[in-house]
């Protein structure tokens, strides 16, 4: 089976929910006209990135009116998008929703919140506590958000959980010049995208945003890398775009037949060794932690179930 997807490399207005919602509707309309079956927007595509004190005023609950309107639109096209999620206990998450046939199929809450260098995310957001793949009409998919992908274990978990496509939503600020042809951030992302797709035999769907906020540029360059590590399509750098790409289910199968790396993964060994390492890790303590039978696997947090 082949599937048409659209990568919405958008330029949201910082903190202007209504304007961005209109922009979403317009992109969704065009994608439907182009016969796309899925449209993917970037991290915080509905709100803009450097929100600071605006976080609480642009946050949405999943039962809000705007959310319901997007659910309605998902009758015609599957939609994955980044937004600020507010929970009933007034926690805010840098989240991404996957909507299909009028249902909220999955909600991913960004696990790794960068709080160093130019980033302040933990000042405003709570950390997600789960990485899961989920069933869609295209097969199993996982969502990861930006910094999640700078931790290879996130991709490892997603793939072991069955994901064949990784939807990678990003708001990557362009930075670092002087080495190579591209910005440092561009070079790193492009290397990671090719590496993950080729190594894990997945479609790496990378959707970055465009535009400028407070003197910081977002470099665009959204792309789809196939399970062989080849670039299927690439959006321009820095500018807005709606990039249509065809994904072929057979590609994932063929690559995994050729290199059965996922089959050969020794999960017991990984779990055993990581458990040992965690138990032996002293951190700030002087003695190794006591062994605890309930420390791994971590208890599922019911808040992450949907």
């Amino acid at each position: 089976m082949k599937h048409q997807i659209a990568l919405a490399q958008v330029y949201p207005k910082l903190g202007d929910l209504d304007a961005n919602f209109q922009m979403f509707r317009e992109k969704i309309r065009i994608a439907i006209n182009q016969k796309a079956e899925l449209i993917v927007f970037p991290e915080l595509g509905l709100t803009g990135y450097f929100l600071r004190d605006m976080v609480s005023s642009v946050a949405l609950k999943t039962r809000s009116k705007m959310f319901k309107e997007l659910l309605n639109l998902s009758q015609k096209i599957s939609i994955c998008f980044g937004f600020v999620e507010e929970t009933d206990s007034v926690e805010f998450f840098n989240s991404a929703a996957y909507l299909e046939k009028g249902e909220l199929v999955h909600l991913h809450r960004k696990v790794y919140l960068p709080t160093y260098g130019m980033f302040d995310e933990q000042r405003y957001f709570s950390c997600g506590k789960a990485i899961r793949s989920f069933q869609t009409r295209f097969g199993k998919i996982a969502i990861l958000i930006c910094e999640d992908l700078w931790h290879p274990t996130s991709v490892q978990i997603a793939v072991q959980d069955g994901a064949q496509w990784i939807l990678s939503l990003s708001s990557s600020p362009g930075r670092g010049v002087g080495k190579g042809d591209h910005l440092y951030s561009t070079q790193m992302w492009e290397a990671m995208n090719r590496f993950y797709a080729g190594l894990y035999g997945v479609y790496q769907v990378y959707v970055n945003r465009a535009g400028v906020e407070e003197g910081v540029n977002f470099w665009g360059g959204s792309e789809v890398i196939n399970p062989k590590g080849q670039v299927m399509a690439k959006a321009p750098y820095f500018e807005e775009d709606l990039l249509k790409v065809e994904l072929d289910e057979g590609e994932v199968r063929r690559s995994r037949v050729m290199s059965p790396l996922i089959r050969d993964e020794n999960l017991d060994l990984v779990i055993y060794e990581l458990t040992r390492i965690r138990n032996e890790s002293t951190g700030s303590q002087s003695k190794p932690r006591r062994k605890s039978s309930r420390s791994i696997p971590q208890r599922r947090n019911s808040k992450n179930r949907i």
């Binding site: 260098g117 130019m118 930075r175 010049v177 440092y184 540029n217």
Partner: peptide, 14 residues
């Protein structure tokens, strides 16, 4: 004043 970010360490940002 707004500074256009180019390098890894921009004054007042990182």
């Amino acid at each position: 004043p707004l500074i256009a970010k180019i390098s890894q360490r921009t004054i007042d940002r990182d």
